[in-house]
Design a protein around this nucleic acid. Structure first.
Lengths: 343, 343
DNA sequence: CTGAAAGCGCTTACAG
DNA sequence: CTGAAAGCGCTTACAG
């Protein structure tokens, strides 16, 4: 059997209440006593029983987590939300409540508003996909100063003293996309275009950098003919790709590194090039699955959206329950390649 | 707050003990009472509190799980074991003990011996990588008849009334490997060889089938020049590949679909072909990582070994704790592609 | 600063 | 067949 607080109390000749206070660094214990108790706990190899802890805590405070996503109308977030909801359910059993709010697009003002709503509701922590803007950073640092913990998921923000970021390394994601283009070239001379949402978004910029770096370093036979910015919009993407295909007749591949894939694929299909162009995308939405199955998209680079949602919420919940922060502040989700056979 | 046993007891006008007995199908409750209690629990949306349950159970029986792997000297199982150990630790906290035994290779006799040891030790369930042999199936069905639950991981066995199998679909894994070869061909005429361990191993046979099916269906430009069986042995693999490369000078790629990769790569390197052949492997061992980094291996097909270990043990533990079987008897782990940038 | 005690939700030996 | 009660390991309001 595992070591319990009761055994520590016996060895240390104090009450179980005092052991609890000492071990959890709660106020009201003489420093020497606290030190002795902790020493004994250490020697005995004490590990708190989370089940008992959460059960006991149920009588008193209920912790609450606010979750804020830029997910409205973005199918990528379906899997993220699934992970979030599973973590929420488990935490709810352990006595941690939660609420999800969402906004459309990466709108700093709308995001700040929601953050302040959460603060007013008295949440103990916030999990969010931050808009990478200084105003947002300022507001987040404000709530952190009030003792509200912050965890970022999927995309990060600079200048914020957050507890953790859970998401992929976008440069790595870019490298993998570049490598896919390279692998598919089989050493032949190729001409490709890269479609991103916007260079203003850090993750997009990093992804683009990764793609270019890998092509340059490992696949000099491939040249990047164009980099288009579609603002994550299907119609804009359709227009851009349509023009591109007229302009560059000898194009051999396109890498869609952002949303708007549906529009882009439509343009490719109208040009009758769906079997001739090598197409690589990012993530695994319904449109992408469909077009992998019919052979239009060769492969897609994924980033474990479910894990981003699940782990982000879980980390914050566990911290609220146990005071234990994750061992690393950056938790990278895996980047991996999917094809029609393994979606 | 969630619904508790106490609330159900109040509504049903019985004691909490009776509610517990009814809900968990324990003996000693009049059938009508039990039915009414369950009905009420259902209506109220009752979900048992696992934390409280495990805490309470601690006073009484301790459950025990036996874990049996064919992992001796096989680096693939390192990640599986990591998952197993994490699940073990969590379950230990919830009052479920466990023990790991391992054997070398897929030796039916050795495996049967260990299974019987576990049975004698009085385990409540066994998680194992079964040797797919009728003798083993018979022994497993014997322990299952005694009330010991069985979960298979990584590889399955036919004719056994097991609770679940956690592992990849090997045909799918084969398809993905075939698709990789295809993608890399860029439509050119290619000649490849496939190296497997043995056709006698079901998983190997399935993987081979997947590779061939995909090549035939989607990439008629690729012909399979040879299928070699290396018995998962590095030296045998070295010899086979060495001869192969002398014989077939126009080979363009090799797919290593089993262990023995180190020997095979050595042969490729001695022939000076490490930059010319497209090489695809399975799983992510140290040797494979190394050779992806240096560009010898283009990509590898992975199957989530950590999850296989973690989920296999977790499912059995949760069943022992709650009586709840997994919703599906076959839990497929994802098949995905890794390259040097995302290992 | 410290201890004694209640109680979180559940399970089971015991008594009837 | 059923109920009353103890206790799993922990936390905290209360009393001193």
């Amino acid at each position: 059997m595992a070591v319990t607080i009761k055994q520590i109390a016996e060895v240390a000749q104090v009450s179980r209440g005092t052991v609890d206070r000492a071990l959890n660094h709660r106020p009201g214990v003489k420093a020497e006593v606290a030190a002795r108790v902790r020493q004994i706990a250490d020697e005995l190899g004490y590990k708190p029983d989370m089940a008992a802890r959460s059960l006991a805590s149920k009588r008193y405070v209920r912790k609450k987590i606010g979750i804020l996503l830029c997910s409205e109308g973005n199918p990528f977030f379906e899997d993220v939300l699934q992970g979030i909801n599973n973590a929420r359910q488990e935490l709810n059993h352990l006595g941690v409540e939660s609420e999800v709010k969402s906004i459309k697009g990466f709108d700093a003002r709308a995001q700040i508003e929601k953050i302040e709503e959460f603060a007013k509701e008295g949440v103990n922590g916030i999990v969010l996909t931050p808009v990478n803007a200084p105003e947002v950073a300022e507001v987040l640092n404000g709530v952190i100063a009030k003792g509200i913990q912050v965890v970022t998921i999927n995309t990060d923000i600079s200048g914020v003293k957050k507890m953790a970021y859970v998401g992929c390394d976008y440069v790595t994601g870019g490298c993998v996309g570049g490598e896919l283009l390279g692998m598919m070239s089989n050493g032949l001379t190729e001409k490709v275009a890269i479609v991103i949402g916007s260079r203003r978004v850090l993750a997009q910029e990093q992804r683009l950098r990764g793609i270019r770096r890998t092509l340059k370093k490992d696949f000099p036979n491939i040249t990047v003919e164009a980099v288009l910015e579609n603002e994550d919009d299907d119609e804009k993407c359709y227009d851009l790709v349509s023009s591109l295909l007229k302009e560059k007749e000898n194009l051999t591949g396109i890498c869609f590194a952002a949303a708007g894939v549906e529009g882009g694929i439509r343009a490719v299909r109208e040009a009758g090039l769906e079997r001739k162009l090598q197409i690589v995308t990012y993530d695994l939405t319904g449109v992408i699955k469909e077009n992998m199955k019919n052979g239009t998209i060769a492969a897609t680079v994924c980033q474990e959206p479910y894990q981003q949602g699940y782990n982000g919420v879980d980390i914050l919940g566990k911290y609220l329950l146990s005071g234990q922060k994750p061992s690393k502040a950056v938790i990278n989700t895996h980047v991996y390649i999917a094809t029609k056979y393994n979606i």
